[in-house]
Amino acid sequence: MKKVTGIGGIFFKCKDPNKMREWYKEHLGINSTQYGATFEWFEGDDSTKKGQTQWNPFPETTKYFQPSTKDFMINYRVDNLEALVEELKKSGVTIVDAIESYDYGKFVHILDAEGNKIQLWEPKD
């Protein structure tokens, strides 16, 4: 089973998300909203299939990354989230929450070996 197919997003804590968005816009040309910026690309395995990667600064006081104490969270794109979660459970990986479905895909959070919160995303491309 193919597991991770790419990076779906990079999220990090900062003192002032609006100031960070302005800095990145001015210096690196990243135009973002309160929901971040979306980078679109085409998959290497199928160059007709479009994908996206999300970038977003969060307030340093956010609870969204808990139970991790780290200042970042990476979102990985996956092919079959439900099957992968079952494999991870069998391997003793900590599953933080239940799979949630939205019109743009399914999500779940896990912890890696050092307690970093990881978001897994099966997109509806």
Rank of each mutant, 00 (worst) to 15 (best):
S91G: 07
T48R: 03
E43N: 10
H27K: 11
N75S: 14
W23G: 01
K49V: 12
G29F: 05
Q54S: 00
L88D: 03
G44L: 11
V85N: 03
P57S: 05
D16E: 09
F107W: 06
L28M: 15
K117N: 11
S47M: 12
T5L: 10
R77Q: 12
D103Y: 08
K19V: 09
G6D: 03
K124M: 14
N56L: 15
I7R: 04
Q54T: 05
T33E: 15
M73G: 04
P59L: 06
E43W: 13
K117Y: 05
Y35M: 13
N56P: 00
W23D: 11
G6M: 02
V108W: 02
Q34A: 12
E87F: 01
E60C: 02
K90F: 03
E26S: 09
E100L: 10
D46W: 04
N31V: 14
D45V: 13
V93D: 00
I10M: 11
E43L: 12
M73L: 11
D79A: 09
Y35E: 13
F65V: 04
L81M: 09
T62M: 00
I74Y: 09
A83E: 13
P17G: 07
Y76P: 04
Q119F: 00
S68I: 10
E122Q: 15
V4K: 02
R77P: 00
C14L: 04
F11T: 10
S47E: 14
T5E: 10
A98G: 13
S68D: 06
I95D: 04
D125W: 14
T33D: 15
R21T: 07
I74F: 13
G115D: 04
Q119C: 12
G29I: 07
M20V: 15
K3C: 06
K63F: 10
P57T: 02
I99P: 02
A98H: 12
T53I: 09
D97M: 02
V93K: 05
G105H: 03
K117M: 13
G9T: 12
M20T: 15
E43T: 08
S68W: 05
I99D: 00
N18T: 13
F39R: 11
E60T: 00
K89L: 05
Q54W: 07
F107A: 04
F65D: 07
N18W: 10
N75A: 13
F72K: 09
I99K: 03
W41L: 09
D71F: 04
S68C: 10
E40I: 14
K19N: 09
D16N: 11
G8F: 08
Q119I: 13
Y104N: 07
Y104F: 12
E122A: 09
T38M: 15
R21Y: 03
V108S: 00
D16A: 05
V78P: 01
D45H: 14
P67Q: 10
T61K: 10
K15W: 06
G8C: 08
N75I: 13
D46L: 05
M20E: 14
M20W: 12
K50A: 08
L28F: 15
V93W: 01
D125Q: 14
I74M: 13
T69S: 14
A113N: 13
E60M: 09
A83L: 11
K15G: 14
H27W: 07
T48P: 00
L88W: 07
S32Q: 13
